[in-house]
Amino acid sequence: MRTAFGEQFDVPAGYLNTASIGVPPVFAAEAMTDVIGRWRRGQDNAPDFDPMVATARESWAALVGVNPERVAMGATVAEMIALIAAGVPDGTRVVTVRGEFTSATFPFAAQAYRGVTVTEVDADDLTDRAPEFDLVTVSAVQSADGAIADLDGLRAAGTPVLLDVTQALGWLAVDVSWAEWVVGGSYKWLMSPRGVAWLAISPDAPDWIRPHNANWFAGQDPWTSIYGLPLRLADNARAFDTSPVWFSVTGAAATLPWLVKLDRRAVQEHNVGLANDLLARLGLPPRDTAIVSLNAPGAGEHLKAAGIRCAVRAGRIRLAFHLYNTAEDVDAVTAALATHRVE
């Protein structure tokens, strides 16, 4: 058991895979245990989860810095992005960085039949090239290697931006509220169960999003929108909701309000400090991100044998440091890689 930022985490030493799956604080895991217990005893009713949806939505909105009325709820990032992709005008020119996570690009690439194009450029060229296009879709932090986007440059470029904060929100202390659309999953750095994703829609965003997933929960009053026409959707971003994944929302409603209260600058300094310490010990320059990407051929088995949980992305070892990690984890990785050439 580890204690971090005032809460306990039942996470083992060497867990450096938050960029794949975040580990919840004990109180959030207990909330999940409780709801499963109520389920098996038949003690819940569907409306019982509505307050949890509201709490989770309000908390994610606070982390992004927007009004909750601007936030729609879904289950996955790609699902939320697809609402925008399906609504962009024919012939829309989309730009992204080379090697972007495909949930941010495939929904647009799937619109090729009506002339929508997606162009990949080098990350260093994105801000300069952005004015040539109608839309930028990019992650605030890259999944493969933790590279942080030039958010100030994108904001100044003037092209509408769809920003995926899945690998950023929860550790990176940065303003993202300016983007036309901000999307993110909750199961990594936000340490909630998989099955909850969010989309913040700016009042200044182009009118490209359509409620293709229109359903009862997106109604102005969901519990009177269950049967019959006419269409009667909410008059805010809830019009793009899908009905909640109840157990996932339970976990999000537990964890997200706690994250809102944390000093995000302190979280960032903790995470980045550990990542930079590891790089320094390996003789590599600091990168000032919580994700470390290493080229270390053959090192995977040594890391596994040492109890290090990590991932391989784009052919490189990916290690992710979050608030429950400590110098003990840095020591373990350094020892496991002692006989390997790392770059």
Rank of each mutant, 00 (worst) to 15 (best):
A205F: 04
L190M: 14
P206M: 13
Y113K: 10
A62W: 03
A62S: 05
L262W: 01
G300T: 07
D44Y: 05
T289F: 01
P257Y: 01
V136T: 02
L337W: 00
A234P: 12
L16D: 04
P285Q: 01
K188E: 09
L151D: 04
A149Y: 00
W258N: 08
P160D: 11
A254E: 14
V333K: 02
T224E: 15
V71G: 14
F106H: 15
D48N: 11
V333R: 01
G298T: 00
A29E: 06
W258T: 07
Y187I: 15
W258H: 13
A266I: 03
F106Y: 15
V342G: 11
A140W: 09
V141E: 12
R316M: 01
L229K: 11
D204E: 12
D34P: 05
E100M: 07
W258I: 11
A130P: 00
D164A: 06
T289Y: 02
T339C: 08
A72P: 14
P47C: 11
A86W: 08
L278V: 01
V26C: 00
V267N: 05
G42T: 10
L199T: 10
G74N: 14
N236S: 09
G91S: 00
R194T: 08
V312T: 04
A61F: 06
G251H: 15
G283K: 05
A252N: 15
L151P: 02
S202W: 09
N17T: 09
G146L: 10
I308S: 01
V174S: 07
P160K: 06
R238I: 15
A179E: 08
D50I: 05
D150H: 02
A4S: 12
E180H: 08
M191H: 08
F9C: 11
F5K: 07
C310W: 06
W198H: 08
L319W: 08
G6P: 01
G22I: 13
H212Q: 06
F49V: 13
F133A: 06
V267D: 03
D331H: 07
D331I: 02
R313G: 03
L319D: 11
A85E: 08
I308F: 01
V136F: 01
T334G: 14
P206R: 11
